[in-house]
Write a protein that binds this DNA or RNA. Sequence first.
DNA 1: CATACTCGCTACTTTTTATGTAGCAAAGCT
DNA 2: AGCTTTGCTACATAAAAAGTAGCGAGTATG
Lengths: 110, 110
Amino acid sequence: MSLPKPGQPVRGSKSGQPIMALLDLLGRSWAMGIVWHLYNGPSTFRQLQAYCESISPTTLNKRLKELRESHLLERTVEGYALTKEGKELYELIEPLGSWARHSWAKKFKS
Amino acid sequence: MSLPKPGQPVRGSKSGQPIMALLDLLGRSWAMGIVWHLYNGPSTFRQLQAYCESISPTTLNKRLKELRESHLLERTVEGYALTKEGKELYELIEPLGSWARHSWAKKFKS
DNA sequence: CATACTCGCTACTTTTTATGTAGCAAAGCT
DNA sequence: AGCTTTGCTACATAAAAAGTAGCGAGTATG
């Protein structure tokens, strides 16, 4: 799987519109979960592995590479951490959390 | 792949927190693209297939089933359409579009 | 009535992704 | 020197997605 970049054809869009590249990137397994988790603070590779209970090191490493190349996270002395863009992204997807709890989950209670 | 439901263990979380179930669901290939597209109005199966240029009918059908069972879309006389919840969800992820264009894409121009 | 569409979908094979497990090299204790 | 932790790679297996063909139902057209 190649890195989706805005402006280039990606999985799902020959036009490479930024939103499609972003959806391709975030649509890969664990990508959003990693961003979600790192908002709490930097984590090491092994901490991320423990957090994402069933991720394999192979996949984790691939996702980390992709997210780094996409400028959403970086390595620091404390481990992997969100960049400015990564934090912005988190703040955009954050409302999903409360919506999922308060509106969406209720539809499954029947 | 089984349908992720809030309150049950899902890919990535034994707790089944709604947000994790949602991320699992949306993280599957094309799921967000389908929601994104349907906000413009209902589409038939073949229209969706044409829109998602490289999706296979097998995968499209699976995604549609999952999204229907998750109450995000439904079948109408005009084809597949977003439910009230689906529209709410779209409106939550919609800001990603302008962020991707205006902030994120710029990081790749170097 | 026949034939020729379109539509929603299934069957099947191939390719791509992800998982599961083992373990290595580098760095930091002790 | 020995023992751990850390970040990661290698390899085999399993799961998911793509690619292609085509069926049965419905509708339109001659």
